[in-house]
Design a protein around this nucleic acid. Structure first.
Lengths: 221, 221
DNA sequence: ATTATTTTTAACCATTTGGTTAAAAATAAT
DNA sequence: ATTATTTTTAACCAAATGGTTAAAAATAAT
């Protein structure tokens, strides 16, 4: 890494991209095991040495590719944060009937959470530990417009007498609570409810079917 | 601490308790700052030196009173875990009408969570990191009987046609999700919804009023 | 007052941790 | 083939970390 400006693997590979097929294996192997380490153990719990070992490489190589633990963590966090909110904003803004929208949000949430079960606790944790981490990531996500649009849709349904009075915020928090919490609290709930992994996943599948109706019933007149 | 069997401060003070008024200040000061450190930073993020500093004492004194980081952590975890589940089990088993029970659970939850906002994320985190930690704590909590009783009450309401079909488990998960999640995700939700601390607390108060009705509406016929 | 006991501290210690360096190995460019 | 460049490693390093020890200070017992 003696040419700091031009030779950083990432920049280099970006430049090279398209010209020759990139050998991403090392860099991607690191990212893969780093994601696992950070999402499972958090920033302070993860160890650079463990990441190197599990990637089957020297620790210095991790620094060669990603400079510091914080930088590597930042990349992982960005990606997981993206997973948390991606497609949610556009769904909330979508021009579809409210009840259908609720069903789609729940469905999307549970699919996404089944695919990335460690993601929500990781994101919530690191934001709790360091709220500033969100600031730069939230810029493009123009939530104001999104929420205002959603509130309008809800107000319209209230006025029509289709649903009870509720704020867009509270409804959204309710939907996310009901979707996300069972994944965040999974290890605890598993023990408390004395469920096997299979049992728990079946329970989640039942939720996927019932949750939308539960929410719709809660607000409909 | 040269008399390992008899002189450990805790044992000693227990023996002395009642005879002369105990000077618990040091031990309690440690517990107080340790709770803050562990609940905010987790087991791996908390530092014994920080705990000593914030308690205004030498680090060796922390070990004198609590032996090791793990032991100290264990004490804190037990207490926070207790907060999480205490009074919930008895409320679930209480012989009161279902809708009233739901309202009381929600009310209890939100009061408890307002008082100990760091507790749920802490417990969930540490259980996620090390699920075995729950095993010993869960023995006395004979959940089976509790859940069976609750299911009977629900089945009875279903049979009477008062509520829609739902399992005790799913209903309980729903209640806890809706109560706990806004506290766990507070820093994130605060940023996303662009709320000040005051705004957020007001939002929680609104929830406290509306949540029980939301749940009851969701299940009632 | 003297002794025994408990509490507190300063100074250490071994290990872990994130990070660096210089050189070697592998690959690409000429 | 030779040189330049990139990738990888072994060996370090300084700081941090959980923990220990021996002695001092404070308190209690006699």
């Amino acid at each position: 890494m003696y040419n700091q400006l031009l030779s950083l693997p990432k920049i280099n590979q970006m430049v090279k991209a398209g010209i020759k097929k990139k050998d991403k294996t090392t860099e991607e192997a690191i990212l893969q095991v780093a994601r696992k380490a950070f999402t499972q153990k958090g920033l302070s719990g993860a160890r650079m040495q463990d990441i190197a070992n599990e990637a089957g490489i020297n620790k210095a190589l991790v620094h060669y590719y990603f400079e510091s633990k914080e930088k590597l963590f930042g990349l992982i966090f960005d990606q997981e944060f993206e997973k948390f909110f991606s497609s949610l904003a556009s769904l909330i803004s979508a021009d579809i009937p409210l009840f259908e929208k609720i069903a789609q949000i729940v469905s999307l949430d549970i699919e996404r959470l089944s695919q990335f079960p460690d993601m929500p606790l990781f994101v919530i944790n690191e934001v709790s530990r360091n709220p500033e981490i969100m600031v730069k990531r939230l810029k493009q996500l123009q939530q104001k417009t999104v929420m205002e649009g959603f509130q309008k849709q809800i107000n319209s349904e209230i006025k029509k007498g289709n649903i009870k009075s509720i704020s867009a915020e509270q409804l959204l928090i309710n939907i996310q609570s009901l979707s996300v919490f069972p994944f965040i609290a999974k290890p605890m709930l598993k023990k408390v409810l004395q469920k096997t992994e299979k049992d728990y996943q079946e329970m989640i599948q039942v939720r996927k079917k019932e949750l939308a109706m539960f929410i719709i019933n809660a607000i409909k007149n």
